[in-house]
Design a protein around this nucleic acid. Structure first.
Lengths: 237, 237
DNA sequence: CGTAGTTACGTACACCGTACGTAGTGCGCT
DNA sequence: AGCGCACTACGTACGGTGTACGTAACTACG
């Protein structure tokens, strides 16, 4: 009987070091950092067990001593970059604090464009996720509502940020690893869209597209969306 | 030089039939239906080119005559189930209509649990997506705002629905194809969470978990979130 | 009627996650 | 002190993936 559990496993519940046997050559942080480095440079799809092992300088199968499944590697990555979340003394203005948190999450995701794809509620229990959550709740102290509702607010904020950044990155992310440029693909899609709208089958869409959009400011659109979410949860006056 | 374009391609811009050569044995709808059948029954990961081809009853490589890349197969799938969106004469009450649309999307995603994972803004131009968008805009006719803003509203609604359903399905989806039950994994995670919270490092999280949540009604939580989103966009007054 | 463009599909390649077996290492217990 | 066992390390191998390429059959157009 090997030491491997045949039972559900949360990697965080696994001790990183058990005293017996030779000292491990790498820490979890080393491994996460290597995987993050690859994902940042070559995209999430380049994060394979083989690549990460090579980046670390060990054999492929040695990685499995540290990370039982690839999914756990992903969990490690998410936790690692979650540690980049800056924390501060709550200002007393919960709205301002939440906006700042949202903006920071957006920057984090721009720095690590693979993050939105890995974001999962299941990963909400990692050490850095817990620190982050506690910080959010601290910022919401001035707000008079149940913790359950505050959790919903944080979830909604995170979700909306993730959603918006996904949209922002949707085309940029594809640039990597695709033989043609994102602009070309975009042009093809827009061209098709135009031809469809021109058939007259979608009058309102036609109107929407003939409307002058003005300069599109992604930052402004993002900030607007965040404000809307906070509005929705603010106590009515 | 083969007929394959070395240039960006939108599958919808490709004619399904070009007159020359033998008549194709399958339609795009056939292929999409086969892929959807597999995804519904065995999960998204079971949707491989080989499986879909086998489901259709043709050789693997024959599929590539219809679908140049696997990504296009996904696009076909999303479009196919988007066709299940019921459309109706706008009631004049935009809020009620939007709620109905949101609820319907949720049901759609419960019927096809792989949908949230495939949802991408890039797929927004497929035929059924256009019909859907036009319907949404029609329901928003009573609302006095720019089409740009209405598009944002629809995007936000879709995003929030996707996000909520993802959460609802996060554990259920994992049940399939995993050797242990989702309950076991959940228990492991909750156990670890409890042990962390018990350290006292996260006082607010501790408070949040000691709070009596009452009965958790997923439907109610979902409806609440939708109302909040609509509130956020409703004209103030 | 030829021929060009299409359909059909078998073979092959590079890559993936990971099960399994083996060898070496050093802590903990007796 | 020294035995034993849990651990690290890692090579090999298997079954899967997406898809490039080559070949044969077929049909609508010039």
């Amino acid at each position: 009987m090997a030491g491997r559990a045949a039972v559900p496993e949360v990697i965080w519940a696994r001790p990183e070091r058990t005293g017996r046997g030779p000292k491990p050559a790498y820490t979890r942080a080393d491994i996460a950092a290597a995987a993050v480095r690859i994902a940042d440079a070559q995209g999430l799809d380049a994060v394979s067990m083989r690549h990460v092992a090579a980046e670390l300088g060990c054999g492929t199968m040695s990685l499995y001593n540290y990370v039982p499944r690839k999914e756990d590697l992903h969990e490690l990555m998410v936790d690692a970059v979650s540690g980049e979340h800056e924390q501060w003394e709550p200002s007393g203005d919960w709205r301002a604090d939440m906006l700042r948190i949202g903006r920071q999450t957006r920057e984090l995701m721009h720095r690590h464009p693979w993050l939105p794809r890995l974001m999962s509620p299941v990963y909400g229990f990692s050490p850095n996720a817990l620190r982050y959550l506690e910080h959010c709740l601290a910022c919401l102290d001035p707000l008079d509502m149940t913790y359950g509702m505050k959790m919903q607010l944080v979830g909604m904020l995170n979700g909306v940020v993730t959603m918006y950044v996904s949209n922002e990155l949707a085309t940029a992310e594809r640039t990597r690893s695709l033989p043609w440029s994102a602009e070309q693909e975009n042009a093809a899609r827009i061209g098709y869209l135009g031809s469809q709208v021109a058939t007259g089958a979608y009058p309102r869409m036609a109107a929407a597209f003939s409307e002058d959009p003005g300069p599109i400011d992604l930052e402004a659109v993002f900030a607007f969306a965040l404000e809307r979410v906070l509005d929705a949860f603010a106590p009515k006056g």
